[in-house]
């Protein structure tokens, strides 16, 4: 089996996997980073969103081998030790999660939005979440959480 190496959450990591292994499965099974979830098999739900070289990517849409040498951030790498990121605080403050399964993908996707648009409108947030499904919250408090995070991160509400 081939070996693949990448930097995940600031640490160099490598592992052996079959060529057909999806990145999400490599993260979960080889690296034990189970915060990234699998909610579908057609790349619609967004539960597996991670950042690869700064871009938000559904990690079920690429092979682990394609991530050779990449810089990857997963949900486990968002907080600074015990200090939560503003977006994590915002999700908690605004009840932006219920069962928590879609949450890692939502947070990674929302961070990507705020990187490109520090002060998104409600409509822009809702449009951006097109690729992230949540069955619990009706999206209401997720949108509120992202608005609050934008404000906390420097955008004006």
């Amino acid at each position: 089996m081939p070996t693949v190496s990448m930097t995940v959450n600031g640490r160099k990591m490598s592992g052996e996997c079959e060529e057909r292994t999806l990145l999400v499965n490599f993260l979960r099974e080889n690296l034990g980073l189970t915060g990234t979830h699998v909610g579908c098999d057609t790349s619609q739900c967004g539960a597996c969103c991670v950042h690869i070289n700064g871009d938000s990517v559904k990690s079920c849409t690429m092979l682990a081998l394609q991530a050779e040498g990449a810089e990857i951030t997963t949900i486990e790498g968002v907080a600074d030790g015990d200090n939560l990121h503003a977006i994590q605080e915002a999700f908690r403050d605004n009840h932006g999660l219920q069962c928590g399964f879609c949450t890692p993908g939502m947070i990674m996707s929302a961070l990507d939005l705020l990187k490109h648009n520090a002060n998104p409108s409600e409509a822009e947030i809702r449009h951006h979440l097109e690729g992230n499904l949540c069955r619990c919250t009706g999206y209401h408090n997720i949108v509120k959480s992202i608005q609050a995070a934008a404000a906390a991160m420097g955008g004006t509400p």
Partner: peptide
């Protein structure tokens, strides 16, 4: 009250069945 369970979910440390090996 903010939820006690949230910290593990927002940091990717939930423990769902498929996370168990």
């Amino acid at each position: 009250v903010r939820r006690k369970e949230d910290k593990r979910f927002i940091t990717g440390r939930g423990n769902y069945t498929d996370d168990i090996n």
